[in-house]
């Protein structure tokens, strides 16, 4: 299975998620080598097209592309011809004309990556976060991190049946939406923990439980996923004060002590230390592992979109059509005839 775009976690389904995570395992091994680089995407160009500030997602994607030997173009809205009045559509056309193979798009408005995907003629489009909507690669690296960290603790690595609490500003969080889809697809039981003002207006079809009481859940959770309080997206008074938020929903040292010993504490970053989580709880968490895994998972996504061929999906090359031996070598001959192409 290969894809043409990665816009939503829902594009992948449970099997697609599992396949990307398996690929990520391979790229963790690549990243651990003395020379952490493979020539898999040599000659391909990946453009990161960010209309909104980002540190880790953009650097993570660009690192991933470079480790696959792809060329990287960085587009940031601030220093572009958008300031001269060029439209988004023309910007996409310009990048495609330069022969870009993949566009990693982040925008503060929901749905922009879908629009870009409709305009793009040949480039694959990856959603690097759109508005309050989705952030699929973050969800994939979160699933990957849960699996790896649980395996490292001698626990069952699968997500099915795990109790995951997503705590905080769900309303403004694209991470929460993608995580709910991904965790849910892999069979985890997700509870959203937030004050009513920080929940979306409707949760129909989300398939999650809701709680306003973090303290009563602490002992039962396998994963506590803290969301950043997105002060820059809050246009109305949704909270009385940050201190009151921390008192009710912050993972303080006192609350962290009540978690089960194997509970994973996660956060998509950037962290507001002292607001949604206490500083020394951050240091005991797996947050930096999430960042490290992010590179391998994004390598997997880029390779899945640009590099992985598929016997079923791809049209046969000229040699394969001409030479019957080029179709398959069951059981023998790894120096096989596909190499003819």
């Amino acid at each position: 299975m290969t894809g043409t775009n990665l816009l939503s976690v829902a594009d992948l389904g449970p099997d697609g998620i599992a396949e990307v995570l398996r690929l990520a395992d391979r790229f963790v091994e690549v990243s651990s080598r003395p020379i952490p680089k493979v020539p898999a995407l040599r000659g391909k160009t990946v453009a990161s097209v960010f209309f909104e500030d980002s540190t880790r997602t953009r650097l993570s994607f660009e690192t991933a592309a470079r480790r696959l030997s792809a060329d990287v173009l960085t587009f940031s809205a601030g220093s572009s011809s958008l300031n001269k009045g060029e439209s988004l559509r023309d910007t996409v056309g310009t990048l495609e004309a330069m022969g870009v193979d993949a566009l990693v798009v982040r925008h503060r408005s929901s749905g922009v990556p879908w629009q870009v995907a409709r305009w793009a003629r040949r480039a694959a489009v990856v959603n690097g976060g759109d508005g309050w909507h989705e952030h699929p690669t973050q969800a994939l690296l979160d699933c990957y991190t849960v699996g790896v960290e649980r395996r490292a603790r001698g626990l069952r690595p699968g997500l099915s049946g795990l109790r995951v609490g997503i705590v905080g500003d769900v309303r403004h969080s694209r991470v929460a939406r993608s995580d709910v889809l991904a965790f849910g697809a892999l069979g985890a039981e997700v509870t959203l923990v937030a004050p009513p003002t920080l929940l979306p207006p409707s949760l129909d079809g989300w398939g999650v439980a809701v709680s306003h009481d973090l303290d009563s859940l602490l002992g039962e959770l396998d994963v506590v996923y803290l969301l950043r309080l997105q002060r820059e997206r809050m246009t109305e008074a949704l909270l009385p004060s940050l201190r009151e938020y921390t008192a009710e929903y912050g993972l303080t040292r006192r609350r962290a002590a009540r978690l089960a010993p194997d509970t994973l504490v996660m956060h998509p970053g950037p962290v507001n230390r002292g607001v949604e989580v206490d500083s020394d709880v951050v240091d005991a968490s797996v947050i930096t592992h999430q960042v490290a895994n992010g590179v391998a998972v994004r390598m997997a996504v880029l390779f899945w979109l640009l590099g992985a061929g598929s016997a079923a999906g791809a049209p046969p090359g000229p040699h394969e059509a001409a030479d019957p031996a080029a179709v398959a070598l069951p059981g023998g001959g790894s120096d096989d005839a596909r190499a003819l192409a």
């Binding site: 391979r26 493979v38 020539p39 898999a40 995407l41 992985a308 061929g309 016997a311 791809a314 192409a341």
Partner: peptide, 12 residues
């Protein structure tokens, strides 16, 4: 697999 000259033509 990541070093082949026929990447994209075969499943990984």
């Amino acid at each position: 697999a990541f070093y082949r000259d026929d990447i994209g033509l075969r499943p990984v």
